[in-house]
Nucleic acid binder design. Structure first.
Lengths: 139, 139
DNA sequence: CAGCATCCGGTTCGATACTG
DNA sequence: CAGTATCGAACCGGATGCTG
């Protein structure tokens, strides 16, 4: 089946990455981009840009995120070198997340994008209404 | 209009489900943000920023996108008022997609983000390697 | 050429329950 | 508090058939 074939190709890719220093000509930036622009990745950047946060603080501020997805998102961004994880060996556990230097670079660009959308959300919604009306006039 | 009123009520309901919060202002932008930062949304912005494209051209340039997802993405962005769809009534069909003014505004910000990542992809990958090494030193 | 409708396997998401 | 494990639900993406 195609599935097997595809899985095999992906395995090969994974192994290339694992074995280390192979710089693929295929764009790895798309993988990083996927982490950054992921649903919760964006919100993590926005939140951490305002300073260091604990896990529970992130969970509280990023409304709607599940534990699993927050953990998963933080892991990915940590692996990409955008987020720094600092675990204090105390009981109860105390873990802090902050942006690295490169993380801050990304964050300002993410913020510019989000900021534009928030500023223009009203005209966007208006356009949406008009679009819906135009496509639903027979209603 | 009744449509607007009803849409507003539905929006409020959606907000309650999505956020469980009273802040009506923060949430619609999150929906738009989701469209913009979606996996293929980003690539559509980047491609259309270079000019008008036909459906098949988009499908060809955005490597890996399926027909269904491209259609779905274009619909969402059109509804948000970022993409303009122009269908020429000829046989065979000729449909062109381009960015609206607000779409262009978004596109430049998306491009800045992507551009930074592409420029810094090497140091990001290096960091990734180091991270993997540090977490895998036992072999 | 540019879609839409549908089915289906695979992946991802998210709530719950549980661990250290 | 900060996660992990698990399972059902939702979503993604390919294939196919049909339309104009």
């Amino acid at each position: 089946m195609n599935n097997v074939k595809k899985a095999l190709e992906e395995l090969t890719l994974t192994e290339k990455f694992r074995q280390g220093n192979v710089r693929l000509n295929a764009c790895p930036s798309r993988n990083v981009l996927k982490d950054v622009t992921s649903r919760w990745g964006v919100l993590v950047f926005l939140t951490l840009q305002q300073g260091t946060h604990r896990y529970s603080e992130l969970r509280h501020k990023i409304n709607g995120v599940s534990e699993k997805m927050l953990t998963q998102t933080l892991h990915a961004l940590e692996e990409d070198g955008f987020v720094l994880r600092t675990a204090h060996p105390v009981i109860p556990p105390h873990v802090e997340y902050s942006l690295t230097e490169s993380g801050k670079e990304v964050a300002v660009r993410v913020e510019e994008l989000v900021n534009w959308i928030e500023v223009n959300i009203n005209s966007i919604l208006t356009a949406k209404d008009e679009y819906a009306a135009a496509h639903n006039e027979a209603g």
